[in-house]
């Protein structure tokens, strides 16, 4: 279980996260150079806010992919928690706090339900999360057929502006990454997740409680989807049941770009977050390039597709074609 996946013949390989970070730095420099306003706290804040949003979705996807699953309900969960937030996050500070807790509970509940369908129901993750995702977006649409509702503006302001020139979003992301990355690398729980993704059978033999750990991974997925849903609410100040679809594919593409293997067991939350920021920077670049606005959805789709193809190019290098059919 090496960070870089299949390291060949002992040659030194640059860690994948470093490659992603360098790529992001180049893209960001390019973005600043064509952004008409140049570098300013304002530009940095907008960029960080958008990036954090997708990064949270990507971390949600990361936990599920880590245990060799896939979560097609990330988008629907974000939409549902966003809609729930639009009902609950307003009023007195105590009400707002309770609202945030309830939104998180909804997210964890959805994630847990996904996990139960996969672990207890033994339904393949694709179909389980696809079907449950249709339930979540259905509930979101029933709760709020058209966008609306209100979000507490004090909380929104606190989370979407900057502190002494540093965007709050970047600070929040740093805190989230530290809180997640250390236990993931240092605790038995974290190592168990990597082990399950690397080899389920070996994990069972080692005595890892695979079902419980898998459930926990899916629940963490729901938790981070709820954080993303909350953050959408902070950015838009409304609840919109239709925001989901693009987040599912974007979160998958982000983890692939960030060096998380779809076959499980490889990758880090930092990688997923970097992948998310890379994607957001590319779409920001397109926004300020001379592409016709109507052509942008196609290029965004094409970039996602190319990213996914590049991420899976490792398969082309397998020595024996038989290895492909494991």
């Amino acid at each position: 279980m090496t960070e870089t996946g299949s390291s060949r013949s002992g040659r030194f390989k640059v860690p994948r996260v470093v490659i992603s970070a360098v790529l992001l730095a180049i893209l960001f420099a390019l973005y600043i150079s064509i952004q008409p306003r140049g570098f300013s706290t304002y530009v940095l804040t907008i960029w960080s806010n958008q990036g954090l949003l997708l990064a949270l979705a990507a971390i949600a996807q990361f936990f599920v992919v880590l245990v060799r699953g896939i979560d097609l309900s990330v988008g629907p969960m974000i939409a549902l928690t966003n809609v729930v937030a639009s009902y609950l996050i307003s009023g007195s500070p105590a009400q707002v706090a309770l609202g945030v807790v309830l939104v998180m509970v909804v997210g964890i509940g959805c994630g847990l339900l996904n996990g139960l369908a996969v672990v207890v129901g033994r339904i393949p993750p694709i179909v389980a999360t696809l079907a449950l995702g249709s339930l979540y977006s259905g509930v979101a649409l029933l709760l709020r057929p058209t966008p609306g509702g209100a979000i507490d503006e004090t909380l929104s302001d606190a989370l979407t502006y900057d502190v002494y020139g540093v965007p709050t979003a970047l600070i929040a992301l740093a805190i989230v990454l530290i809180l997640v990355a250390i236990p993931l690398r240092r605790s038995r729980f974290g190592m168990s997740l990597y082990a399950i993704g690397s080899s389920r059978d070996a994990s069972v033999m080692t005595g890892i409680r695979v079902p419980q750990m898998t459930l926990a991974a899916y629940s963490l997925g729901g938790f981070f989807a709820a954080l993303a849903g909350l953050y959408v609410s902070m950015l838009t100040l409304t609840g919109d049941p239709n925001i989901g679809p693009s987040y599912t594919l974007n979160s998958i593409a982000a983890v692939v770009i960030g060096g998380v293997a779809l076959s499980g067991g490889v990758g880090s939350p930092l990688g997923a977050a970097l992948g998310a920021f890379i994607l957001k920077t590319i779409s920001a670049l397109m926004f300020f390039s001379n592409l016709p606005p109507l052509a942008q959805p196609f290029f965004e789709g094409a970039i996602l597709a190319i990213a996914i193809v590049l991420g899976s190019l490792g398969m082309l290098r397998v020595r024996s074609r038989l290895e492909r059919f494991l």
Binding site: I70, V256, L294, G301, I308, V309, L316
Partner: peptide, 28 residues
């Protein structure tokens, strides 16, 4: 078959590209 991308991910990406093409073609 060739790139060995999981079908659900790849077909989802193809779906996104087709959406982009139809939006571009119909100008929304």
């Amino acid at each position: 078959a060739i790139f060995r991308i999981p079908a659900m991910v790849w077909t989802l990406a193809v779906n996104a590209m087709l959406l982009g093409i139809t939006v571009f073609y119909t100008s929304g």
